[in-house]
Amino acid sequence: MNSEGKLIKNKNGQILYCVKILGGIILGCLFLIPIYMLFVSSIKPTGEVFDLRFIPKTISLNGYSLILKQKFLSYFLNSLFISTTVTIVALVFHSMAGYALARLDFVGRNVVFILILGTLMIPFSVILVPLFILVKNFGWLNTFKGVIIPAIPHAYGIFLFRQFFLTIPKELEEAAILDGCSPFGIFIRIFLPLSKPIIIVLAVAFFIANWNNYMWPMIVNQSQNKWVLQVALANYIGRTDTPWDAIMAGGVITIIPILILFFVLQRYIVEGIKMSGIK
């Protein structure tokens, strides 16, 4: 192939690449336009929120001042505390369980796996009342532990950890055993470092799920100073006088910490270091 042909091919490739990126950005608009509507609604006066204009007639920060005037900071901190605790504890527990299910050979492995997977299939509305009665008998109503502890066991994370641990090459494990590494050592020194992307994905997912959780905290907690953000937001919605601008502003404010978290962490997702050790 002469150099001219190569150049044409490169040029074509470049055009194709640009088209691809353009397509990616257009697709991005599909994801962003509704979010833009959320943002733009939050800076309209409450009476104009539902004129649904793309560009606001008047700009008002009333919604933000209204929502920040409330005990917003304390709801924010409650949500932050609950979500962070659940996320950290769940990551530790679920990575351990996922490792056992993926890489350890033990009696009853399939049964345990299916039992755990089965818990995903139970509609929450059916255990709502029994769980409430249970938590009440523990004396956990109106406490943070009543919100936090029942949220920790969840098959989703265990299942994802298992699936990713399954893909880690056997050779790495065998080499470590030859070096005299214990099974727990293998888990800590090989599996966890290699699973950084999936740990990040799950950390973000757990955090968001708990950050946005509404039903369970609403049921467990009665007193206003234990409210989480989503309960406080839902409490605004009434038959008349609903401050839609404040609800929209609350919506914007609640996603900002998550976006920052994701933005900071997401670069680790693509490191893809797992295979660097072997070919």
């Binding site: 709502l128 009440k136 839902a234 009434g238």
Partner: peptide
């Protein structure tokens, strides 16, 4: 006085509370 979100007042909130005897 305790404020409960209207959408779930009668359904989920009162039902679980009375079922749990609280």
């Amino acid at each position: 006085a305790v404020s409960i979100p209207q959408a779930d007042y009668m359904g989920v909130k009162l039902t679980t509370a009375f079922a749990g005897d609280v």
